[in-house]
Amino acid sequence: MSDQEAKPSTEDLGDKKEGEYIKLKVIGQDSSEIHFKVKMTTHLKKLKESYCQRQGVPMNSLRFLFEGQRIADNHTPKELGMEEEDVIEVYQEQTGGHSTV
C-alpha cells in the first residue's frame, strides 16, 4: 500500500510543476525593474502585453530577450528553461537604418 501512496504523490508533484508559478524580473533599458509572477505554462505574450500596457507603449515597439534570445509570443517559461528570479531584458525595437557599404 505504501507504494501506491507514494506513486500518486509523485504524480501530484509532476502536476504541481506544470502549474507552478515563478517570479520573473523584467528590466528596461533605463534599468527599471518590474516583477511578474507567471505560470510555467503561460505564453509569455501575456507578460509582454502587461509590461507594455504599464509602460504605455505599443508591444511592437519593444523586444524582449532572455539569455540573449528573442522571446516569441508563444514561448512559455518552461520551454525556455526559466527559473525563479530570472531576468528578461527589454530593448527599444530598432527599425529602419541603412547599409554603410
Rank of each mutant, 00 (worst) to 15 (best):
P58R: 08
E79D: 12
Q29I: 15
L13A: 14
N74E: 10
N60E: 15
E5R: 12
F36S: 03
T100Q: 09
E11G: 15
T42V: 11
S50R: 15
G56C: 06
G96Q: 01
I27C: 07
S61N: 03
H98W: 08
D15S: 09
K16T: 11
K23I: 13
F36N: 01
F36G: 03
I22E: 00
E33D: 04
C52K: 00
Y51I: 05
D12Y: 10
D15I: 06
S32G: 12
N60R: 07
G97H: 00
E67R: 03
F36H: 02
T42M: 07
K23G: 06
D73Q: 05
D73H: 05
E84V: 09
P58W: 00
S32E: 07
K23L: 13
A72D: 09
S50L: 15
R63G: 04
M82D: 03
R70Q: 15
G28F: 00
V57W: 09
S32P: 04
M40I: 13
T42I: 04
V101W: 07
V90W: 01
V26S: 14
P77E: 04
D73M: 03
G68S: 06
E67L: 09
V101M: 09
E84W: 14
V90T: 14
G97T: 05
K25L: 00
R63F: 05
E5H: 07
Q92I: 08
S2Y: 12
T95S: 10
I71M: 02
M82V: 02
E85T: 07
K25S: 09
S99E: 08
D86R: 02
T42N: 02
K17G: 08
D15N: 13
S50E: 07
T100G: 09
Q4V: 06
E11T: 06
S9E: 13
E89R: 07
K46I: 12
S61A: 09
V26L: 15
G97P: 00
T100D: 07
H43D: 12
H75D: 12
D12V: 12
H43T: 10
P8H: 06
V101G: 07
L65P: 03
I27Q: 04
S31A: 15
K39M: 00
E11K: 12
K17C: 08
S32A: 14
A72H: 09
Y51W: 14
S50K: 05
S2C: 12
E83A: 14
F66D: 03
T10S: 11
T42A: 09
T41R: 04
K46P: 02
K7F: 08
T41L: 05
S61Y: 14
E67N: 13
Y91C: 07
K78A: 10
T42E: 04
V90Y: 03
K48N: 03
K17N: 12
L80N: 00
Q4W: 07
I71A: 01
G68E: 02
V38E: 01
G19Y: 10
Q55T: 09
V87R: 13
E83M: 14
A72S: 15
D12T: 03
D12W: 00
F66W: 11
E49R: 14
S50I: 15
Q53R: 13
L47K: 01
I34E: 02
D12E: 10
N74V: 12
G96R: 03
E18Y: 10
M82C: 04
F66G: 03
K7H: 13
E93P: 06
P58Y: 02
Q55W: 08
R70I: 11
E33I: 14
M59Q: 02
K46C: 03
M82T: 01
E20H: 09
K48T: 00
S32T: 08
D73R: 01
M82S: 03
I22K: 03
E11I: 03
I88H: 04
L47S: 03
D86V: 04
K7A: 08
R54G: 05
E93N: 10
Q69G: 08
K17S: 11
V26T: 08
T41D: 00
Q55V: 15
E84G: 13
Q69P: 07
S32H: 05
E11R: 10
I27K: 11
D86Q: 02
V26Y: 02
K37W: 07
M1E: 07
G96F: 04
E83P: 00
M40P: 12
T76K: 01
G28M: 05
E20G: 13
H75K: 06
I88W: 01
I34L: 07
V87K: 11
L80M: 08
Q55I: 15
S32W: 06
T42Y: 00
G68I: 00
L80R: 01
I27D: 03
T41E: 04
H98L: 09
K23D: 06
M59N: 11
Q53T: 15
D73Y: 04
K78P: 04
G14Y: 15
Y91H: 11
K7T: 11
G14E: 12
T76H: 00
S2V: 14
K17A: 09
S61I: 04
E49A: 14
Q29S: 05
D3H: 12
S31T: 08
K78Y: 15
H75T: 10
G96Y: 00
T10F: 12
F66Q: 02
K23C: 06
Q29P: 12
E5M: 14
E83I: 13
L47Y: 04
T10W: 13
D12I: 13
E93A: 08
Y91E: 06
R63Q: 05
I88C: 02
K39A: 02
Q53G: 05
D15R: 12
D30A: 12
A72R: 12
L47F: 03
L24W: 00
E18G: 14
K25T: 09
K78S: 15
I88G: 03
T42S: 09
K16D: 06
K37M: 05
Q29F: 02
M40F: 05
Q4N: 14
K45M: 08
S31N: 12
D73A: 00
G28Y: 00
E83Y: 12
L62M: 05
S61E: 04
K23W: 15
K78L: 05
I88R: 02
M40V: 13
K48I: 05
D15V: 12
D86Y: 06
Q94E: 06
D15F: 11
G56M: 11
E33R: 05
E67V: 06
C52H: 04
T100C: 08
E18K: 13
L13Y: 12
K25Y: 02
T41A: 10
E20S: 14
P77M: 01
I27L: 15
G19T: 15
E33F: 01
P77S: 03
K45G: 15
K45N: 09
H35V: 09
S2I: 13
E20Q: 13
Q69S: 12
L65S: 01
S99M: 08
S61P: 02
M59W: 05
P8C: 14
V38Q: 01
I88F: 03
G68D: 04
Q4L: 14
K37T: 03
E49D: 07
D30S: 02
T100P: 07
E18Q: 12
G56E: 07
I71E: 01
I34F: 15
Q92K: 12
H75Y: 06
L13D: 13
I27G: 03
G68V: 02
T95L: 14
T76S: 09
S32Q: 09
I22Q: 03
T76F: 00
G19F: 15
C52L: 02
G81T: 00
S2H: 13
H43I: 10
K78N: 14
Q53K: 09
K25I: 08
A72F: 09
Q92R: 13
H35L: 09
V90G: 04
G81I: 04
E5C: 00
Q92N: 06
L65W: 00
G14A: 08
Y51F: 10
K37V: 01
M82A: 03
L13H: 06
V38Y: 08
Q69C: 11
M82H: 04
E85F: 15
E5A: 13
G14P: 01
Q92F: 03
G56D: 08
N74K: 14
V87M: 14
R63S: 07
G96L: 04
M82G: 04
S9P: 15
F66S: 02
Q94Y: 12
E67G: 10
L24N: 03
I71R: 03
S61L: 09
G28D: 06
P8I: 06
K16A: 12
V38F: 06
F66E: 04
S99A: 12
L65G: 01
H75N: 13
E18R: 11
V87L: 14
K37E: 03
T76P: 03
L24Q: 03
S32N: 12
P77I: 00
F36M: 00
S31D: 00
K7Q: 11
Q55P: 07
D3T: 15
D30L: 06
G28I: 15
D86W: 00
G28T: 00
P58D: 02
T95R: 14
E83F: 05
S32K: 15
T41Q: 15
